[in-house]
Write a protein that binds this DNA or RNA. Structure first.
Lengths: 341, 341
DNA sequence: AAATTTTTGATTTACGTACATCAAAAATCG
DNA sequence: CGATTTTTGATGTACGTAAATCAAAAATTT
């Protein structure tokens, strides 16, 4: 049987009330007594029963998710997953609020974060735009002892408690190796389609991709990055133009969203041009394109896993509890047409 | 606020005691009353607070993991993860027992399963050997209303409640495509190293592998399967022999354990022979071999995830609760040297 | 040493559910 | 109809923790 508060009281030779005062940091306990109780807690290895405590407190965890608006499939999926989590709210004792902000809009994101100050919040998860102002706003929340988790895209040098997302440098490196190996020893040009170089995850993917290409696939030449702004129309015209102007392009790495446009551009040149294509994010469109051979591999981060992980970590952080680190590692999923879920 | 038993009682116009009798299927309730209560439960959407119920019942979930002995890295890792789970037992209200049986030993496995009959067990997870006797033993447990979960390797046509493992046909197909694409358009022979064709996961991997090879990579010829019995020594000699006798071998797929021997054999011919190699299970050895270029890709199933998932599913099944299906899907991890955890 | 302040103990209620007991009411039987 | 059986209600305790109140004891100040 796991020790209870009664056992601590007995072991420390104090009353239940005193143990409670120590455990919940209530005033009116002498230092010596506090230390005696703390020693007993350590000695008998007491661990608070969070379920019982939450029951007694009628605790709910008010959580806030700050996610970008915008209609690309990935963010849509992310919002969907947060919404799914709200359906489990009563069971999980969470109270989830979704705040939407325009994408890449630093002031809006800062305003959304600052609005949470002084509020009774058990945790914030945000898709970070990597800017000093955002970092400062996050640090303000952290200094108010509010758990802050970055989701999908991390924040450089901030004091956020946790990052629920993939290692984007590793993702870029992996894309490079897949593309390089799939192309055998062929020689030619490669095009990279990104969303925006303003977000950290895209920059890091490119960085990892470039590094491996330079180190290990010298026959493949990187062309200047196309910035599609995660907009399908723009992506389509950029890719179409690049393909028609340069017949040496044999591979494409799309590291952002807006793959609908890319796929349309590819289908337009499909039977003639033989292209090896690696893209990010499994969506309805990329799944279909993978199955019909338009693209060769999809790198993915599981939005559902990210949201569930963020919730677990926020709750644990709010309670000062440890998490199972392994369980909260977000993996880079690699999908070929054969292992689609 | 989420409705409680009191709310049901009020809504149904009965006492708390009657609600309790209905909820816990205790006798002494007229059919009409029971239906009235059940209607109220549905109507106000009552969901039992499992945490509070477990507190009241001082419930612990006695769980049994039946895993094969044997010193290969994967099973070692699996046992390690079960052991890790025992460390969380008091927090998770589990009481985990590990039963070890010799690998591929059907009577031993059946005996271990039958020993659990009549015992007060909240769930069983087993690494199944795919035999009719095992299936029958599993079905006996299921008919006793004990939740049964297959782990890593599934059981054909049994009534087990859940399978916590990867889709092995998809794994084999994925291995084939990786190998095929990595080999570019080259022509040559492929060797497959398996553990034993008696286990279903190995058979399925081979089946998926062969299918994709036949459909899409006609220039690559499959040699007869080498059965290494998950034994490093045997694997080493089999592979060494094959490589020296057949100079046309350009690729290897190792779909079982015992990769230590394979890696030794590869290193022995390393600078001269250029081989593309895909193996299963990320271990200390395969990780090192991936990093030093001896092998090209590792397919993996996360034993920690499998064990944690199995525990969640057993608990939920014991309580008649639903699980988050997505969360319990075990993914096929693909590791290149760039995305190692 | 008395007065005051601080610390500690004892006790109670609550959270949502399980489970047991006993009495009261309703249904069924002869 | 009364007697018996079945069903229902009322009530209390428990699980492990939180939180509050009031009294008692100890420490500190004057």
């Amino acid at each position: 049987m796991r020790p209870t508060v009664h056992d601590i009281a007995a072991a420390a030779g104090v009353s239940l009330a005193t143990v409670d005062r120590v455990l919940n940091q209530r005033p009116g306990v002498r230092l010596v007594t506090r230390e005696k109780v703390e020693a007993a807690i350590r000695q008998i290895g007491y661990i608070r029963d969070v379920a019982a405590a939450n029951l007694a407190k009628s605790r709910v965890y008010p959580l806030v998710f700050i996610v970008p608006t915008g209609d690309n499939s990935f963010m849509h999926g992310l919002r969907f997953e947060v919404h799914q989590a709200t359906l489990r709210a009563s069971i999980e004792r969470t109270d989830i609020r979704i705040v939407e902000v325009p994408p890449f809009d630093v002031p809006a994101l800062v305003a959304a974060l600052d609005a949470l100050q002084e509020q009774d919040i058990a945790g914030v998860a945000l898709v970070a735009t990597d800017a000093p102002e955002v970092r400062a706003a996050v640090d303000r929340l952290v200094s108010e002892r509010i758990p802050v988790i970055t989701l999908v895209s991390d924040l450089t040098d901030s004091t956020r408690h946790h990052y629920a997302g993939i290692d984007n440098i590793a993702a870029g490196r992996t894309a490079a190796r897949l593309l390089g190996r799939f192309l055998g020893g062929r020689e030619g040009d490669l095009t990279v389609l990104a969303g925006s170089m303003l977000v950290r995850d895209h920059r890091e993917r490119l960085q990892g991709f470039s590094a491996v290409m330079a180190e290990e696939f010298p026959k493949l030449r990187l062309l200047p990055v196309l910035e599609g702004r995660d907009d399908p129309e723009r992506a389509k015209s950029l890719v179409s133009k690049a393909l028609s102007e340069n017949k040496d392009i044999i591979g494409i790495y799309s590291l952002g969203a807006g793959n609908r446009g890319l796929i349309a551009a590819l289908k337009a040149v499909r039977p003639e041009r033989e292209l090896t294509v690696v893209v990010h994010e499994l969506t309805r469109h990329t799944r279909a394109a993978l199955l019909d051979g338009t693209i060769d591999a999809v790198l993915n981060q599981d939005a559902g896993h990210e949201v569930r992980s963020a919730i677990r970590v926020m709750k644990a952080t709010a309670d000062g509890q440890a998490v199972i680190a392994d369980q909260e590692r977000i993996r880079l999923d690699i999908f070929l047409k054969d292992n689609l879920p």
